[in-house]
Design a protein around this nucleic acid. Structure first.
Lengths: 134, 134, 134, 134
DNA sequence: TTTT
DNA sequence: TTTT
């Protein structure tokens, strides 16, 4: 009965960092600068949220291959709040987005999801006629 | 550079209809009644959008097994505008949502995505310590 | 208990059309071409949804002033399914998005919502100190 | 060219806290427990994100009047990452959602936005006929 | 610590 | 009828 969805558009503050988990899964992370619209409805750069994005597996490969500092992208994913205890015994809380989709917004033609793409169109090759769909 | 996302919460007007494509893919469809909030910000049932939802494969199985008339659900997917020609030669346009996620909102505990779930938590079993995540 | 949200990124197929309702409200409409990602996860132009967008009042003014054919924008709004009876007595159904936010994706610096922007930052000018926010 | 949108469904961990800013704006805050779906696609309560929600003005009044511990709600808003310096000189980062819409998911009929509701339907009273909308 |  |  719960749901968690985030959609962000912003720019990478740096090139992504790539590492691997113990079991070999590729993990690519980066920070997205998402500026807030100001009073006039137009954006300023005075107020910006810097949001950590985490990607895995195929999507991490895509990130590693195509994303670089300064690129404008759309990220879709889930907000996760990590809670951990510092050396001083205090609990801290750090947010990150576990992305499941990345779309370029600034150059040509690319979007990738963290899933196998289903070939929907192929399913219906036989229905190219004049019948209403329902 | 394009993106298409829809999130709806509403009730099934009937039990889903299930069929199969020529190549054997399961397809389950149903109509979601999504009422519009009225002037006071509270909902009436006088104004309602009836939106056709289409699901495939595993998600269609889930829909077939669990969804029934009247249930309250959240649907996430893509808006598709089908365009087809009627017997009178006129073009018509019918909208539908190709769902990739369904979440129950009215009973206990269920959500299903049209993808294999990645075992994110398992990836990090080794990192349960006091280090900050970044 | 219902909810209806759409987020689209695509290009205007033409310049917006502007008109007024009987009571003087400005209405600007246009069609957004939203192409579907193809099998490789990269976009093609073979498959595109053409989606009618409707804006009112201030947002319509913004659309009239800034949007032109070919521009890449993000639109947020609600999906509405209009149902009407044709001359032949048949019922038809046409979808449209009633937008409440438009963001440029292709040039510099603009986003507008169909509401007065609240000056959140001003509310907290007094809290610029070292205290945690909660 | 930036965008920031979050949609969450979860339960209040406590009754909201209400306060006022120096200039008199009402602020209501609460924590939303959003559980993550587990491997089978069904939810467990072992893994939950606890997400701080902030509301202002009219929406804060609504929250104060209607929301109580345990209620299931949908929240729409923006993700903000606050950065502040602790007594130890260390920088911390705390996430919160600045909500602009709240919808009940567990009882009857309510949704409120942080804006004046526009009377769209009234605008078109004169168009209740058999004409296609475009 | 940050992007345009 | 359609955008890049």
């Amino acid at each position: 009965m719960n749901y968690n969805k985030v959609v962000l558009v912003g720019r990478l503050t740096r090139d992504p960092e790539v590492r691997q988990t113990l079991n070999g899964t590729l993990v690519a992370t980066f920070t997205l600068a998402v500026s807030r619209p100001n009073r006039s409805g137009f954006e300023g750069n005075d107020n910006t949220d810097f949001i950590r994005i985490v990607t895995f597996s195929k999507l991490a490969e895509f990130v590693q291959s195509y994303l670089t500092k300064g690129r404008l992208i759309l990220v879709e994913g889930k907000l996760r709040i990590n809670r951990w205890q510092g050396n001083d015994g205090q609990y801290r809380t750090t947010p990150e987005i576990w992305a499941d989709q990345v779309v370029f917004m600034d150059k040509k033609n690319a979007a990738v999801e963290d899933t196998e793409m289903v070939e929907y169109d192929e399913l219906f090759e036989d229905t190219e006629n004049d019948e209403p769909p329902f």
